[in-house]
């Protein structure tokens, strides 16, 4: 049986305490919510923290609150299953709920949280392997080594952003409330990420993601399309989120965000803006999809041929736009 290496487990009673514990331990500790991303990685020794700070039990992070302005605030420790089963969320943010429903498999969604999903570690098939395997192939930049195995001449890590929900959260202009030892701040989800496979988040290690905050629906339709080999369990190897506002059949605002194509969720601005003021006919959708696909440059570090994945992006985007425009979105 594959087992964990020893660590201490700390159980703070408030979010603030979690943050200050993290600050005290100064990089030695990691936070754990559901643990569905972290625990397998610890078993494979991709991280070796001496302590875990549990936050999944904190009641204050477990509710879905409807705000007076019409927006919604979801606690970071709310499970993906709870989001999937929330009819009202489905009505307002169908793309987000769809993305949550496509994460992995049902038992994982019963444990995995929405906060953990935003912060899911970037993936690479030279890295998401056991210690022994990595030792055999040679360690890499992201853990224990000094070169990138996918792009050996590159000074950086290209591990892939693999969150299903992050792209939709960005497309819907959601923000997160971060609680750190110095206090709270609220930042757009789009600024939570940076283009680096190792330091993929701008969040400080001692900051807790406390809430995910969606603005009021306000006519924004949304969708998410995921590419993976099997109908369950698998991480995205490509994905497209679309959010649109329409007026009289014309697009007034649009956002398109991709997952699984780079070390961060990729905002396809040009593609989105080319839709503005147009009917969503085949031409418009094709043009936007091709624009969105152009910058995507997948590498050979996730499932299936990367050349094929690159070709799929435009289809994902086109499907996402079509779905977002459909009735009931």
């Amino acid at each position: 049986m594959l087992r964990l290496k020893p660590f201490k487990y700390l159980r703070p009673s408030t979010v603030e305490e979690a943050a200050s514990l993290a600050a005290e331990l100064n990089g030695e500790a990691m936070m754990v919510a559901g643990g569905t991303d972290l625990v397998p990685k610890l078993k494979r020794r991709q991280m070796e923290p001496s302590a875990l700070i549990g936050i999944g039990h904190l009641e204050e992070l477990k509710s879905v609150d409807h705000l007076s302005d019409g927006g919604v605030s979801i606690g970071a420790a709310v499970t993906l299953s709870k989001v999937v089963g929330d009819g009202e969320l489905l009505q307002r943010y169908p793309g987000y709920v769809r993305a949550a429903s496509l994460v992995s498999s049902p038992p994982l969604r019963n444990l995995g949280t929405i906060g953990g999903n935003l912060l899911v570690d970037t993936r690479c098939n030279y890295y998401d392997m056991t210690y022994e395997w990595r030792q055999a192939v040679g360690f890499c930049l992201k853990k224990d080594g000094d070169i990138c195995r996918v792009a050996p001449s590159s000074p950086r890590c290209w591990a892939v952003s693999s969150s299903d929900t992050a792209p939709v959260a960005i497309a819907l202009d959601a923000s997160v409330v971060l609680v750190g030892p110095e206090g709270r701040r609220e930042v757009p989800v789009s600024s939570l990420y940076q283009d680096d496979g190792i330091r993929y988040t701008t969040k400080q290690p001692d900051e807790v993601v406390a809430f995910l905050h969606f603005p009021p629906k306000d006519g924004w339709r949304s969708s998410y399309v995921k590419l993976r080999r099997r109908g369950s369990i698998d991480f995205p190897i490509g994905g497209a989120a679309a959010a649109l506002r329409l007026q009289d059949g014309l697009v007034t605002e649009a956002r398109i965000v991709l997952s699984g194509v780079a070390s961060h969720p990729v905002i396809a601005e040009e593609a989105a803006s080319c839709l503005i003021g147009r009917h969503l006919d085949d031409d418009a959708i094709t043009e936007a999809s091709e624009k969105a696909a152009k910058p995507a440059k997948p590498l050979d570090n996730t499932d299936l041929a990367y050349t094929w994945r690159k070709r799929m992006v435009k289809h994902l985007v086109s499907q996402a736009i079509t779905e977002a425009a459909a009735p009931g979105r």
């Binding site: 594959l2 643990g35 625990v39 397998p40 992995s104 038992p107 994982l108 019963n110 444990l111």
Partner: peptide, 29 residues
């Protein structure tokens, strides 16, 4: 158990009636 990594479902148990993967659950949880 078939993988100990959350990938196969063999270790599923019910926690408060909900299916969860026991290979990923820490005692405190």
């Amino acid at each position: 158990h078939g993988c100990e990594l959350g990938e196969c479902g063999a270790c599923t148990v019910l926690v408060d009636g909900i299916p969860q993967l026991s290979c990923l659950l820490l005692p405190h949880q």
